[in-house]
């Protein structure tokens, strides 16, 4: 597949043609996806009580509503066992694309088809921040549908994987540093096999040791025939972890193919 992609990887502005690989089993199909979301800008005196009231009386929408066309016609197919890195400058639509795959943003046009329920790990996703780490583990596992026995069986493994400082496991998660929180969250989410796992910079705050272990975990998830999507600004992480890279630019796929090739092109383009 990597070879087929390499040949098809295009650097022009047109969207790369989607090549179907009949020998592999698809797990995510993104079909001509457009995402448009609305932002409500605050600012000026538009938010005062009197103007808000007038708006309601006149039946107008909320003020300064802007439409952002974040993803513009993206199509690709991800197969079981893929680890796909998504790269691009800030605002190129990477996080939006991941949210759309997770089903958190409705497509304006096109569609996203998946096998199983994708799980999205973002940077700010503290699970239950007022509860202790150990409670988060138990409740997280139960929420994912494990029973009490399976949860107990996996507890030690999760604690070990998260590698928190001694004692921290009993502190509320709100007291954790961002790296610790990210590690624990990742450890909990990875305790269950997900068909599709979407990681949005969630590994960025980890240290070198954690990065190594999370890479091993991602490899394991891939072996279990799932697919992993990884958004990271650290290109090394992507190069080490992924077998395929999608370069997004202004909401379009600029390039899709072999990591070395795409990353080289990307580095060159952003170096200019």
């Amino acid at each position: 597949m990597a070879k087929a992609l390499k040949e098809k990887a295009t650097v022009n502005d047109a969207q790369p043609e989607v090549v179907l690989d009949p020998t592999r089993e698809p797990i995510v199909v993104v079909d001509g996806l457009h995402i448009v979301y609305r932002v409500y800008g605050g600012g000026g005196n538009k938010g005062s009580a009197a103007t808000a009231l007038m708006r309601v009386v006149r039946r107008e929408g909320r003020p300064q509503m802007k439409e952002v066309h974040a993803v513009k016609g993206v199509s690709f197919v991800a197969y079981r066992g893929d680890a796909i890195g998504v790269i691009g400058t800030n605002g190129s639509g990477k996080s939006t694309l991941l949210k759309a795959i997770a089903g958190l943003l409705p497509p304006a046009r096109g569609g996203v088809y998946t096998d199983g329920q994708p799980s999205l790990l973002g940077v700010n996703a503290a699970l239950m921040k007022d509860l202790s780490g150990s409670r988060n583990i138990t409740l997280g596992c139960l929420a994912m549908g494990l029973n009490m026995e399976e949860t107990r069986a996996r507890y030690e493994e999760i604690v070990k994987f998260a590698d928190l400082k001694p004692g921290f496991i009993e502190y509320p998660m709100s007291t954790y540093s961002s790296g610790m929180g990210a590690r624990l969250r990742f450890a909990i989410a990875a305790a269950r096999t997900h068909d599709v796992m979407l990681i949005d910079e969630a590994l960025a705050t980890g240290d070198a040791k954690f990065k190594r272990r999370s890479k091993a975990k991602i490899d394991e998830l891939r072996k279990d025939a799932g697919a992993v999507f990884l958004v990271a600004h650290n290109l090394d992480v992507i190069e080490e972890t992924c077998n395929r890279v999608i370069w997004l630019d202004e909401g379009r796929i600029h390039m899709d193919g072999d990591p070395d090739e795409v990353i080289a092109a990307y580095t060159e383009a952003s170096g200019k």
Binding site: V18, P26, Y113
Partner: peptide, 20 residues
């Protein structure tokens, strides 16, 4: 080349469902 409809059909044929 590929029409967008066939991609949706491809997804359906492989038993993929609309996300979420």
């Amino acid at each position: 080349g590929m029409s967008s409809e066939s991609l949706a059909q491809f997804a359906a044929r492989n038993g993929l469902k609309q996300s979420a």
